[in-house]
Amino acid sequence: MKIVTICGVGIGSSGILKVNAERVLAKLDIEADVVAADLASVQSVADDAQVILTSAEFVDAIGPTFADVIVIVNHFDLTELTEKLERALG
């Protein structure tokens, strides 16, 4: 499974999402490849992704995708991340 995290540069908030998503997935015992990317590369990076994690600001710009786009409000809230990932993957 592939999960892509998206932000403007592919460093800050998407990096936090990647790190914390990997922690949550490990705890849920789900194997996945989590990749942080910037908005400009979303179409190429995410074309085989099941899930995109991002902030509300990027949803429109991500455009059409087969992936489940999940909006995260508090990037440091592992409970929010766990609930939303479980819902998308379960």
């Binding site: 932000c7 403007g8 800050g12 908030s13 936090i16 908005l39 902030s55 509300a56 600001e57 990027f58 710009a61 508090n74 990037h75 440091f76 809230d77």
Partner: peptide, 11 residues
Amino acid sequence: DEHGPYVVIAP
């Protein structure tokens, strides 16, 4: 300016 207030990543 370009992408909005997404940098506010937590309360």
